[in-house]
Simulated scan of single mutants.
Amino acid sequence: MSEPAGPSESLAVSTSPTPQGEHDQSHVEGHFESSATVRDIVIGLADGLTVPFALAAGLSGAVASSRIVVVAGLAEIAAGSIAMGLGGYLAARGDAEHYASEKRREELEIVERTRDEEEEVYEIFEQYSVPRANAAPVLEALKQNPTAWVDFMMRFELGLEQPKPGRAPRSALTIATSYVAGGMVPLFPYMLAFENRSALQLSIVITLVALAVFGALKGRIMGTGWLRSATQTLLIGGIAAAAAYLLARLLNGYA
Rank of each mutant, 00 (worst) to 15 (best):
G166W: 04
V209Y: 04
L246T: 15
G182A: 05
R167I: 11
A241F: 14
L246E: 10
Q162W: 04
G166Y: 08
A168H: 11
Q232N: 07
S203N: 00
P163V: 00
G223A: 05
K218N: 13
A172N: 07
T231N: 01
F194G: 08
E161P: 09
V180R: 05
M184A: 11
G215N: 12
P186R: 07
T177D: 07
S229K: 00
G166N: 11
L234H: 00
L217E: 08
S229G: 04
L192S: 04
G237Q: 06
M184E: 01
L187M: 08
R220V: 01
L246S: 14
Q232P: 02
P186D: 08
F188D: 06
A199L: 13
G215V: 02
Y179K: 10
S203I: 01
L217N: 10
L234E: 05
P189K: 04
T174K: 10
G183A: 07
L227G: 08
Y190G: 03
S198N: 14
G166R: 02
A243M: 07
N196V: 14
T233W: 11
Y245D: 02
A230N: 10
L247G: 15
T177F: 11
L234Y: 03
R228N: 00
A176S: 15
L192I: 09
T177Y: 06
L246C: 12
S229H: 00
F188G: 10
A199G: 14
T207E: 10
M222W: 02
L173N: 05
S203E: 01
T174R: 06
S229C: 00
L211S: 05
T231C: 02
V213K: 11
T207I: 14
S198K: 14
G238R: 01
F188K: 03
P169V: 05
L246W: 15
P186G: 06
A181E: 04
S178F: 05
V205C: 02
F214A: 11
G166F: 02
T174G: 11
S178I: 01
W226Q: 07
A248C: 04
P163E: 01
Y190M: 05
E195K: 04
T231I: 13
S198M: 11
A248F: 12
P165R: 08
A176L: 14
L208S: 09
L200T: 03
L200Q: 05
R167G: 06
T231A: 12
V209E: 10
Y179S: 06
I236D: 07
A230D: 01
A199W: 08
A241C: 12
L160P: 11
A216Y: 01
A212G: 05
I175D: 12
T207A: 06
S198V: 00
A168V: 11
V209C: 06
F194M: 13
G223Y: 10
A199D: 10
A193H: 11
L247C: 15
A210D: 09
W226S: 13
T231Y: 04
L234V: 04
N196K: 05
A212Q: 03
L173P: 01
L160G: 08
P165I: 13
G166A: 09
K218R: 13
G223T: 10
G182P: 03
L246Q: 11
L217T: 03
L187F: 06
G215A: 06
G238A: 03
A241K: 12
A244E: 06
S171E: 11
A210M: 02
L160M: 15
A241V: 00
G166Q: 07
